[in-house]
Every structure is written in C-alpha cells, then in structure tokens.
Amino acid sequence: MEWQSDILGPGFESCAFDAVGWDGVRRRATLVRFTPPEAPDALNPQDAPPAAPRRAVLFLHGWSDYFFNVELAHFWEAQGFEFFALDMHNHGRSLQPGTHGGYVADLGNYDAEIGTAVGMIAGSGGAGRVQLVLMGHSTGGLVAALWASRNPGAVSQLVLNSPWLEMHRSALVRRAAWTMVEPIARLRPEAVLRLPERGFYWRSISSSAEGEWTLDSAYRPPLAFPVRAAWLSAILAGQAKVAHGLDIGVPVLVLLSVASENGMVWNEEMRRTDAVLDVNIIAARAMSLGRTVTVERIDGALHDVFLSRADVRGDAYGRLARWIRGYAA
C-alpha cells in the first residue's frame, strides 16, 4: 500500500486498497489522511516528553458522496487527533469504471474495508494502541453505527452527523417500503427505482449553485446516483436493526438540525434546515443506539451540519469540542 498526493492538495494523502468481504468479493476503497506540517520550532526527539496514547478519527461519508471537508480535518487535528477519512467502494476516489456509483447490496459489505482502514490507522504511527473515534454522516452514520455494534471494543467513541437511522415519519413507512422493495431486490437487485429526483441539498452546499463548497460533480453528482433496489433494501434492513436496538457500548454523539424541510419544490427554508431527513424521527431513533447517547440539535443546520453557514457550523464545532472534552479526553 502506497500513499499518494491527494486531490485536496498539500497536507492530504490518499491510499487506494482492496479488501475482500465476507462474500469473497474484492472491493476497492481509498483511505485519506491529513498530514499537517510540523511546527518549525518542534522539539527534537530526545527533548520530547513521553508520547501520549495516539488518538485518531475515521470519517465515513454519506451516500453519493466523498470526503472533501478540509475544515473538518483541521478541527480534529486541533483537538489532538490524527484525521483519516474513507471513500468507501463505489464512491468518490474509489469509483471504478463499469461499476454502479453508490451501489451496495448489503451494508455489511463495507465491513472489510472499514476493518482494513482501522488496521492501517493503527499501523501508521508505530506501536501502541490507538484511541479511535468513528464518525459518520448520513448513510455513513448508519454504516458506522452498525459497524460499531458488530465490532465491540474497536472504537472508543462514535460521532454521527445527521445519521440516516430511520425513514421519514415512522417505522411504518419503512415497513411499507420494505414490502414493496424486497421482492424487486431479490429478483432484480440492480434494478433502478424510478423515484423523484431532488437536488435541493446539493443546491444548498455547492459553490456552483447557492452554497460555498467546491464539489467534484463526478464524485458528488447534483441528483445523486440512481437508486437501485438492493441498495434501498440494504438501507431498510440496516434501519430495522437500529430500531431493534444496537446496544453500542461506547459514548455516542448525534448531531442534527433543529428542523427539516422535505418539500418537492425549492424554498428558502432549505438554506437552514435538513432537506434530506426527518430530523425528529432521527432524534427519537438515536435512543436505540446505546445507553450513553447525546443528541445535539443545531439551529440553522443543513443535512451535513458541518457544511452549514459559518456561524452555524461554528456552533456545531463548539458542541462537538465540548463533547470531546467530556468523553474523549
């Protein structure tokens, strides 16, 4: 495995690797790391105090997404954490010709690449145990929660940014969707479901529209990747597991907007609300994650609270920093 200069420029490196899943399929993923230059007045090794235990964070992006938030990496580094992000298979830097963007038939198919990434993080800084925070956004938040529950002891804390833990309104909607989708997923797993296309969230964050973030349209398309039957079935199955309770044994932080705006036409409220998820049902479902769960509701936040306008994400970073001091110090 070889680290290369990353598309984010100086201070970032990436390493593509293959991981073999439980089903025997080899999948390509890409680990990104932040490598800030050392301060010019850094101590010589012989003058340095005894090394403290390493602390690191691994970030998992959402669906039809990839890691690009340089500010997030700088925040974690300022808190004393090494920062890593994983572009999971069929996403972002890991997209391969001839594959379906964003497609996965079982969320457990991500396990091997997450486990490999954790091993790479542990091995990147020499000997000694790493205190690892797993952080996930949206679908990546659902994946992170399920992975943490299946791998007790692998992470020290779990941070979820607008995790997709449940469908809109209630579990009844999820069960109804499962009834319709599951037969199609079983017979034609890669069939594209004709669902309404909404680019409102992309419009609120992209500098090509009305946001402030530079996005690569090949990695983060305005209307997201096509929704395929087995992918949606996998999401519904994962949400059902959350609903039954995951009993995650480490502290969990869930960050959410105060409000949702899920209409079928654009309106100005989408500049300061979650235009993707039903945040109230997510807040309620978060209580199924474990016994130590903190929910922070951020006024004016978008679906990714750390892509909101500067004052709003400043509030979110402040709340995250406070939680880190309490649970990850």
Rank of each mutant, 00 (worst) to 15 (best):
M1R: 11
P10K: 11
S14H: 10
A16C: 07
D18N: 13
G24K: 03
R28A: 04
A29L: 03
T30H: 07
R33F: 03
F34W: 06
E38H: 13
A39C: 12
P40T: 04
P40F: 07
D41P: 06
N44S: 15
N44I: 08
P50R: 03
A52S: 11
P53I: 08
V57A: 10
F59Q: 12
H61N: 11
H61A: 10
W63G: 11
D65L: 07
F67T: 03
L72H: 13
A73L: 10
W76K: 06
E77I: 08
A85E: 07
N90K: 07
H100S: 14
G101M: 13
Y110E: 05
I114L: 09
I114V: 15
T116N: 09
T116M: 12
G119L: 09
M120S: 10
A122W: 06
G136I: 06
S138M: 00
N161V: 15
L165E: 03
A171V: 13
R174C: 08
A177S: 06
A177T: 03
W178V: 10
E182N: 13
P189T: 04
A191D: 04
V192K: 08
L193I: 01
W202G: 04
S206P: 01
E212P: 01
D216P: 00
S217F: 06
Y219S: 06
R220S: 06
L223H: 12
A224S: 14
V227K: 06
S233N: 05
L236W: 00
A240P: 08
K241I: 10
V242F: 08
G245R: 06
L246W: 10
L246A: 11
V252D: 04
L253H: 09
V254Q: 03
S257M: 00
V258L: 14
V258G: 14
A259R: 15
M264A: 15
M264Q: 14
V265C: 11
R271A: 01
V276E: 00
D278S: 00
I282Q: 02
A284L: 13
G290M: 04
T294K: 04
V295R: 02
E296R: 04
E296T: 02
R297P: 00
R297N: 02
D299L: 05
A301T: 00
H303G: 01
R309A: 10
A316W: 02
L320I: 01
R322Q: 15
A329L: 08
